[in-house]
Design a protein around this nucleic acid. Structure first.
Length: 777
DNA sequence: CTAGGGTTAG
């Protein structure tokens, strides 16, 4: 009788345990645990296995291990449950170690054990271990269990071994929807978009079932490929098939991301607005999309809405938002955001800290960046790379090298981007020998394949140093196809060093390679002009006109009291033109007296596409914009930072002018300019901190749209044409035309100060300013 | 005891 009631009690508790585990009810689980021990089932294997599962799911690995260690005997389920726990708690290494330990016991792995550990290898990206386990799996006859085969495939594709994954897929005796999806996902993961789309087609043709996993992976592939047509077809297909994508947060999320990445913000927004239960992921996709287009206002509006909704702000959103402020060099907003992150547990994430460090570096506050960097409890490759990049841009090449060594002492492996940062740091500090050395280390590192960007960096550096022959040879001998940019770099180096012959050859070649780009003509023409071949120079210029190619006209703008004033080169339309000219003349005289300007430094910035000398006889637009700012503020020393934007690169002459100006007036100037690469130049008391913002992105991880060159909402693009002019750009930034040479910033939204005040951190004092004050000082 | 999908920072 007693026996029976104990049995039923055991049965009841076992059920309760399963329920607790499923619903992650740790406290209830603990009570059941205690009850089981009380009635004498403390060493029941099955119950203990369930306890391991429970504690693992609830994130209490310490307790799961405790149960495991105290078990008088274990079976394969106990081991596997513990491995799963480790894996789910983000500790795949422990799972693998446990797998090794199990090899020394009599307990044999089963299909669950294998698939769990393949997953672990996939997460860790260690194909070597995965292959070893695959071998064991073959020998023990578990290879073609469906779940095992799928997880082997998944492991290979996550480790980038796509051909092994393909082999598994082809050999598989039973292919389920999961197998198809795993293969499609694999292609999408390694960026093989075409293959992914082909497989998707094949699935359809063979009449396989498609599910939401299939669609999201395929959409991701479309997004990698920029295949907007195919993506739109899938979108249409989803609608016509009555797929309830409005509630399918994940599929729609992928759709939003596809449109964002392809630059169709208008479509992205439409899909986004239809999602009933928006996840934080879709929010961050869209916010980032606006930000990368330079639409600061839209990005901030969306962020405000996100805060007002009840969605938990995660690290992705925070780091994206901080990124927005660093891109616009809005130091104050960036600082406020820094404080704001303290409100969230996700603010502790590495990515957030990394973007904060990056933000301070881009705003020129190097000490602040160092402080945050040093206080980080944990650093990853990105953290170190950010710092190395920052030191590089501030001309502290030695510091960059020091960090590069230090990170390796701390067992953080540099990757391709780290090397790029290091090379560029050496380059900007004139450390030629060191660059050569690190470049050869990079080439010898079997883990990293040097990319075009690495070669471009070396060409740039050798070009600066005047080693043009070496640079040219490097291009000829590189195993990758040189791109236009590399040749342009070499060409401008030829100009700097007066290498007429080589320059002419490279220039001619560029015209053949990229004859549609007016910039190449201008560069060649300048080469001729420098060498005194005026007629040839003129001929090249004329041919640009004959071919109907147009170089974008220079345009700069400056914000004064929430109005934006813009100027073209030599623009005299502004009502204060007289005053501007007067003040520029005075100040030029002062700079000349106090600093010796102009130095012969036309090419200090090593511009690829600077405006030609002939055009610069009149005042360049950036000088006019600065002139206006000075008319407005007076020429007293110190005071507010002056922030000027320009659609093209600042020329060497204006650069020296601003540098001198910053010294004479003890003022900070920030010039945001753009072209092939958008930059931000920070002038501080005669020093220049050069900052490249949207530098070429390695490994084509994501497509940064050129800051100025792209208008993206289809609707807007139709309206403004292929937006190239600064004025349309301003409209896209959220400015409203008010006539004359003026733009007005659209009215701000009210700031929710209460939310900010409730931050309840010691940093509160820093958030007393309106959070959404734009372009503040 | 098991498996797959969308977002971030350099």
């Amino acid at each position: 009788m007693l026996q029976i009631s104990l049995m039923t009690e055991r049965h009841r508790l076992a059920k309760l345990l399963r329920v607790s585990s499923k619903n992650r009810l740790i406290d209830q689980g603990k009570q059941v645990h205690a009850a089981l021990v009380r009635i004498g089932y403390g060493s029941d294997v099955i119950l203990n296995n369930d306890l391991i599962d429970l504690y693992g799911k609830c994130g209490r690995m310490d307790m799961a291990c405790d149960v495991f260690d105290k078990m008088p005997e274990t079976n394969v389920v106990s081991w596997t449950a513990l491995m799963c726990g480790h894996l789910q708690q983000g500790n795949p290494k422990s799972s693998l170690l446990l797998f090794c330990r199990m090899g020394y016991t009599d307990v044999k792995p089963n299909e669950f054990t294998f698939s769990t550990n393949f997953k672990a290898c996939g997460v860790l990206k260690i194909p070597e271990n995965g292959m070893q386990i695959h071998g064991i799996c073959v020998r023990t006859g578990f290879e073609w269990f469906p779940a095992v085969a799928n997880s082997v495939m998944d492991m290979y594709s996550r480790c980038g071994r796509i051909s092994e994954a393909e082999q598994m897929f082809n050999l598989m005796p039973i292919r389920s929807l999961i197998s198809w999806n795993a293969m499609i996902t694999g292609y999408a993961l390694v960026g093989m978009g075409e293959k992914c789309l082909l497989l998707f087609q094949k699935m359809q043709r063979q009449g396989e079932i498609l599910d939401d996993f299939t669609f999201t992976s395929t959409l991701k592939a479309c997004s990698c490929l920029g295949a907007i047509e195919e993506g739109t077809q899938i979108h249409a297909y989803l609608i016509t098939r009555g797929f309830a994508f409005s509630v399918q947060a994940i599929v729609s999320g992928a759709l939003v991301d596809l449109y964002v990445k392809s630059g169709y913000l208008f479509e992205a927004r439409k899909v986004f607005d239809q999602i009933e239960q928006k996840s934080v992921i879709s929010w961050s996709s869209l916010i980032l999309g606006y930000a990368q287009q330079g639409n600061l206002k839209a990005a901030m509006d969306l962020f405000r809405q996100l805060r007002e909704s009840n969605i938990w702000v995660d690290g992705f959103v925070l780091s994206s938002m901080i990124g927005v402020f660093s891109d616009f060099a809005l130091v104050e907003q960036g600082k406020q955001m820094h404080c704001y992150t303290a409100k969230f547990p996700s603010g502790m994430e590495k990515s957030v800290a990394n973007s904060i460090v990056d933000m301070y570096l881009k705003c020129g506050l190097i000490e602040e960046a160092e402080r945050v960097f040093n206080e980080m409890p944990e650093r990853n490759v990105v953290s170190w790379t950010v710092m190395i990049t920052g030191y590089g841009k501030h001309g502290l090449g030695r510091e960059a090298i020091r960090l590069f060594n230090e990170m390796q002492v701390e067992d953080v492996e540099p990757d391709g981007v780290t090397y790029l940062a290091l090379l560029s740091a050496c380059s900007h500090s004139g450390l030629i020998e060191e660059s050569r050395e690190y470049f050869s280390i990079l080439c010898g590192d079997y883990r990293i394949k040097p990319q075009v960007e690495h070669y471009a960096c070396m060409v740039d550096l050798l070009g600066r140093a005047g080693c043009l022959k070496e640079a040219k040879e490097l291009i000829h001998n590189m195993p990758l196809k040189p791109n236009i940019g590399i040749w342009q770099t070499l060409l401008s180096a030829c100009r700097v060093h007066g290498e007429f012959e080589m320059g002419r050859k490279v220039g001619d070649m560029l015209l053949e390679l990229d004859g549609k780009n007016a910039v190449n003509y201008v560069m060649l023409s300048n080469i001729y002009a420098d060498a005194g071949y005026w007629r040839e120079s003129e001929k090249v210029r004329v041919s640009v006109k004959l071919k109907g190619l147009k170089k974008e006209g220079g345009c700069s703008w400056v914000e004064i009291d929430k109005e934006v004033h813009f100027f073209y080169n030599g623009d005299e339309r502004h009502p204060l033109t007289k005053e501007i000219h007067k003040i520029l003349k005075e100040i030029e005289k002062r700079i000349k007296e106090e600093t010796g300007y102009p130095y012969e430094v036309r090419f200090a910035l090593h511009d690829v596409e600077e405006e030609s000398k002939a055009e610069s006889l009149r005042y360049h637009s950036e000088k006019l914009a600065i002139g206006l700012a000075l008319v407005h503020s007076g020429v007293e020393e110190g005071g507010r930072t002056i922030r000027v934007f320009k659609n093209l690169r600042v020329c060497g002459d204006c650069h020296e002018f601003i540098k001198g100006l910053s010294k004479v007036l003890k003022k900070v100037f920030v010039v945001r300019d753009a072209n092939r690469m958008s930059r931000q130049l920070l002038y501080r008391y005669g020093m220049i901190v050069m900052l490249i913002l949207f530098s070429p992105v390695l490994l084509a991880k994501k497509s940064y749209h050129d800051y100025f060159g792209v208008s993206l909402d289809r609707e807007r693009r139709d309206r403004v044409g292929n937006m190239k002019e600064g004025t349309e750009f301003l409209e896209l930034c959220g400015f409203e035309r008010v006539g004359g040479g003026k733009f007005l910033f659209l009215p701000r939204d009210k700031v929710d100060m209460e939310v900010l005040k409730s931050a309840g951190t010691a940093l509160n004092s820093a958030i007393t300013n309106p959070f959404f004050g734009l372009l503040s000082k």
